[in-house]
Design a protein around this nucleic acid. Sequence first.
DNA 1: AAGTATTGTTAGATATATCTAACTTTTATA
DNA 2: TATAAAAGTTAGATATATCTAACAATACTT
Lengths: 220, 220
Amino acid sequence: MISHTEEDYLKALFRLVSGKQGKQEAGTNALADLLSLKPASVNNMLKKLRKKELIDYEKYGKISFTDKGRQIALLVVRKHRLWETFLVDKLGFSWDRVHDIAEQLEHIRSDELVEKLDWFLGHPEYDPHGDPIPRSDGSTPTTPSAVLSSMQKGDVCKVMMVKDTSAAFLQYLERLSIHVGTCVSVMDKVSFDNSLVIEVDGKHHTVSQKVADNLYVSYC
Amino acid sequence: MISHTEEDYLKALFRLVSGKQGKQEAGTNALADLLSLKPASVNNMLKKLRKKELIDYEKYGKISFTDKGRQIALLVVRKHRLWETFLVDKLGFSWDRVHDIAEQLEHIRSDELVEKLDWFLGHPEYDPHGDPIPRSDGSTPTTPSAVLSSMQKGDVCKVMMVKDTSAAFLQYLERLSIHVGTCVSVMDKVSFDNSLVIEVDGKHHTVSQKVADNLYVSYC
DNA sequence: AAGTATTGTTAGATATATCTAACTTTTATA
DNA sequence: TATAAAAGTTAGATATATCTAACAATACTT
Ligand SMILES: [Mn+2]
Ligand SMILES: [Mn+2]
Ligand SMILES: [Mn+2]
Ligand SMILES: [Mn+2]
């Protein structure tokens, strides 16, 4: 049996090791940071997860998943993103309010529930923030690789995914009428600080490079 | 902050003290039985709940709610029954599969979620087993008082609520096509053991007194 | 290569929630 | 009313999950 806490550790490890940079392993401190816990607590849990054969790890070494561990992490992520989709699509939640609730719902144990929820939502591929929802077979829909900050003056693109899903950033995007699926035209690029002048819904806005780095897009 | 465990204790206490017999208090052993725990564990928790002012209780005395405690118990029951309604009405679960899942979902913390779920379900008054769903103001819809076993030969009534909601009993009712809302005619009553011959959907069945005791009905 | 900074580990404390075994109080009954 | 049964309590053990403070290993920098 895997506890809520253990699931949260595996999910955090998943976030660290599934980074685009190809890293397949992570360290104690990084995990502690992500979970807002102390390294001592993480170290303690790592021993438990190793004993349960959910991670590979040896003293002073790096941490990586076993197949069993990765499978559990994927299921927790799948549940998290399905619930977020439910909260936004069915219950009418705003996309910046769903994370904390999904953080709880992701731990509900019932295979039947997950599959019925998936059906009820129409087998969605992406959650409200554009993140891919892992499928029950363990595969994952493709994710866009281009960020808005790499676009040039004159480019027109569609927002596909939001990288930073903090409530603050999501609320900021809300004010700019930017959602997943929104069309954005790059009107100008300021070479001094790489900020962009963009057009959304006929309105012009200036966004910093940091903002543009956090918006994945595809050409359209 | 109230833990999942504390919520389960309060919900169990609610079941004991809201019995129709007018008992407003319960004992350590009864609570232990209901929760499948040992009296020592319950005693331990009672001290915590008292310190948090959720129950009134003194050594060797009986246990009853404070207003604060009753309010929390009612909210947990409300959430449990709303989630059961969601599982059956929206996800297509069978009514004998929802209890264990709702047992988990009832602990999800979010006032906004409860109210939006209630709206999404159309403000239901009764759950799939006919149990009343406490309202957000603390009031509770009325419940039927007559049981099928009190009906006489020739009576026609409608099933309003199922008392024993164990999977075994619910599956038995399923085989007889008996649900909440089903019309039942009493064709005969065997005075020897009080078993009943009933007609449901044009079919005749014989049910024991024990079964009939567990079906709340109203005349129709 | 030496010294320093970063990263990771251990020991021991605290909090929650459970148990068993022994004990005490209250209630029922002979 | 004395005794037995039932109900309730306590002490001490175990398991989980966290922390702080002290320590150890590895990596970085000059
Ligand atoms: Mn979580
Ligand atoms: Mn998301
Ligand atoms: Mn529960
Ligand atoms: Mn129910």
